[in-house]
Design a protein around this nucleic acid. Structure first.
Lengths: 257, 257
DNA sequence: ATGCATTTGTTCGTATGTATC
DNA sequence: AGATACATACGAACAAATGCA
């Protein structure tokens, strides 16, 4: 060590990554606003001094990242899109599908997210939010006799309305993603259940109580309702050894003593 | 409408997307476990019946998504990676740079995650976890005089140890991702700060109190400590209008009355 | 430790269907 | 409706890098 400087290992950065980087930076800097069009692929290969394939690989990456939309034969070039949380949802969903992830972890996570969403929603909701939640609840009630899939859609709409009232994009996409994973994990259990209407009625009553708590701006009760009902729904589905891990989140105050 | 069936518009799905879809599904199904290798690009173009360029575009997308790692000249083929929160961090970072996502939302989300992680850790920690946290804390203390970057690494190690004690992969990666975003946002603020050592000392004291609460298995106190310290750190950084949104999460019990 | 076979990174040329003017 | 420019997709080729005998 003749010098005091510390060197870091350099990883070979490929050509297409440099192209992605430059375009992404331009978008993030606001140099390329949503709706703007990129030059044609041939122009780009001239500007970046790389081959057509390299440009295309970069465009595919940016397209799959949700920053661009490319259409075949569009003389205007690729369109810059407004950044959306769709990729965040995909990342979260992927993360939750990873093997070795057990149901208890997903349910735990959902207990945290739903409770926080309800807490925030109770504190920050407006009248518009309340009417949206009520509408979703009415749809749920109407769909009990229709079928579980329709009921499930209305259920998702209710949770979405709550997350919207909470006013946090991360909570919103998190709730959406984790809910999708959970229902995916127990879908066949529901399909095999003898008395689906009873399950839906039970779910309906719980959602009504949540809405009531949010309407009365009772955040802690809304949060606790989320934790309790999720525990009640899924405690039987997890192994005995894991049930304690769910209970650890159930009522924080209990553990204070 | 001669038929009762309802048709949906089909969007032209490109060849590389089909390839991405198939490989991604195989990984998510667990058919391709981390560490497994993909066939060579020439084999893949044979199996998918597409050209090499198409295969490469798909591989680039999967690589940028963090599912694969490709190396030039590797006869073993692309390696399937373990899902990491890096892409989640990137998505969140992008979302924030476009001001669709504000600092208040990220701090809110971190308050939720850190509080829950501390709560679970206090309830479920073992002696091994405690020694790991203590070791990270000692490293933080030793690095106060060294520099902020080293201190920050030890800080991350502490939070990682707490998340590990919580025993939930989703919490772990979530904490890591959101922490990365937050420190990235206020990095220059720290760099410009007059008295970095004072900030580090303050942070050190806070972490020591958290460890104490976790050691005593006082979950609610550990959770509240996380919320309070994050609020104290970042309340000044958010606009006045947003501060109320942070306070809504600060002490849930207060809002009960 | 050396060389060899294989693979990836990159480039170029070409044919085909498509969107815009 | 036609012409033009474009993206999609294919295939071949060369250099650099890797793993294995």
């Amino acid at each position: 060590m003749a010098t005091g400087a510390s060197f870091e290992p350099v990883r070979a950065v490929r050509a297409y990554e440099r192209v992605v980087e430059q375009i992404e930076d331009a978008v993030l800097r606001g140099d390329l606003k949503p709706g703007a069009r990129l030059p044609s692929e041939r122009d780009l290969m001239g500007q970046f001094r790389v081959s057509r394939s390299t440009v295309r690989e970069a465009l595919r990456v940016l397209e799959s990242g949700g920053l661009l939309r490319c259409r075949p034969g569009d003389p205007l070039g690729a369109e810059v899109l407004t950044i959306s949380p769709s990729t965040l949802t995909r990342s979260m969903t992927r993360l939750m599908h990873v093997d070795g992830l057990r149901l208890v972890e997903v349910v735990q996570f959902r207990m945290m997210l739903d409770a926080s969403a309800n807490l925030l929603a109770a504190r920050l909701r407006t009248e518009e939010h309340l009417t949206a939640m009520q509408a979703a609840l009415d749809t749920m009630a109407a769909n009990v006799s229709v079928g579980y899939t329709q009921f499930s859609f209305a259920d998702a709409a209710f949770h979405d309305a709550v997350a919207a009232a909470a006013g946090n994009t991360l909570v919103q996409v998190g709730v959406e993603a984790v809910r999708g994973v959970v229902v995916g994990l127990i879908a066949k259990k529901i399909a095999l259940a003898k008395d689906q209407p009873a399950l839906m009625e039970k779910s309906l009553r719980h959602h009504a109580r949540v809405l009531e708590a949010i309407r009365e701006q009772d955040g802690p009760r809304a949060a606790q309702l989320a934790r309790e009902s999720l525990f009640a729904y899924y405690a039987d589905e997890v192994p005995d050894a894991d049930r304690e891990r769910l209970r650890a989140l159930l009522d924080p105050v209990q553990h204070a003593v």
